[in-house]
Computed example of a mutant assay.
Amino acid sequence: MARKESSIRADTSAQIGIGTLIIFIAMVLIAAVAASVLIQTSGVLQQKAQATGKQATQEVSSNLVIKSIDGVRAKNSSTSMAENISLLKIKVGLNVGSSPVDLNQLVISISDGTNINDLIYANNEKSYGTAMSNFSSSASADTNLEKLLVATQSSPGDNAKYFFTVSKIRDEDTSFSQGSPIMNTGDLVTIYVSTVSSADLEYTTIGPITTSGSQKDSSLDIEPRTSLTLVFTPEAGIVTSADFVTPSSYGTKETIQLYP
């Protein structure tokens, strides 16, 4: 009688199926992690792009426009006036579509070719560690102008060398005040910069202010034929500058148009 041999066949198809499943699950997990990283990265990039776009727009759109610059000579009378310009009256507005500009953060650099003063708004107490001495946010613009011309403090020194003051001409939305000098589109202001020289200290009047000879030396000297440079650097936006040469003679005029 023939003897039957039995054999067991190895069946590995189940193992292959499990391996394929493991690989599939791993691919799904990797894809999920990659998708999560991409979503997170795209969100961060979107936020940075929006912030950069906003800053870029502000840099381009915020723009001070110098309308005119007049120089005022110190005097004792209509026939006794200084040979130099003692005060600059700078009429400033904003370009069309400009973002609001805080003049409290504006820096004005003025040079007469020999000396240069970096001026900040009189109520700014951050740059020099103190605001302009005797400045009052509730006082009139002329009162603060008087303090600009005649007052001093131990640090940083004479107000005329370190500060400027402002008065408003047009402010329809009442956004501008001495304590919070915010300019919006359509606003128009006058910025006062002291340019009193050591030769002007004997005179008693500068513009609307009676100084009684107490004005402080600004270290600037704006004689006829002086090359003058002003640079306006706002907190954000385009730097605005004006370069001009003063007239060859001031004649008998108290106020002289210097720019444009």
Rank of each mutant, 00 (worst) to 15 (best):
S136Q: 12
Q58E: 14
N63K: 15
K67E: 14
I256D: 03
K253E: 14
G129Q: 06
S99R: 09
G157Q: 08
S214G: 01
D221Y: 13
S99E: 13
A160Y: 06
D217F: 09
I182H: 01
T174Y: 01
D221Q: 07
V72P: 05
L149M: 08
Q58F: 03
I209L: 10
T240A: 09
G71N: 01
T240K: 06
L230A: 04
V28K: 02
L145V: 01
S62E: 08
L45F: 08
I116V: 10
N84M: 02
I169F: 02
Q105M: 10
A2I: 05
D187K: 02
V28R: 02
K67G: 07
S248L: 02
Y203M: 02
Q40G: 00
Q215I: 05
S137Y: 03
S177Q: 09
I23Y: 06
I238N: 08
S249C: 03
K4F: 11
R225E: 15
T174S: 14
V33K: 09
N124D: 11
S86A: 12
E125F: 11
V92W: 01
V65G: 04
I23A: 15
I23P: 00
L228R: 05
I256N: 04
A139Y: 12
D118A: 11
L220V: 01
M81H: 04
A34V: 09
S197M: 00
T246E: 05
L106Q: 03
A242M: 11
S80H: 11
T229S: 15
E172D: 13
L87V: 00
N123A: 14
N117R: 09
T211Q: 03
V92L: 01
S13V: 08
I25N: 05
N144V: 06
I90D: 05
T195W: 11
S180G: 06
A199W: 02
S214I: 00
T165M: 05
G71L: 05
P156N: 10
P224S: 00
I116P: 00
A32Q: 12
A151E: 14
K48R: 12
S7H: 13
V245R: 07
A151V: 01
A199R: 07
I108Y: 06
P181I: 11
G213H: 06
S249I: 05
V239K: 14
R73I: 05
E235A: 15
E202G: 15
R170L: 12
S68D: 11
G93K: 09
S99V: 07
L230Q: 06
E202K: 06
I120A: 08
L201R: 12
N159V: 02
P208L: 04
S140W: 02
T233M: 15
I39H: 08
A10V: 15
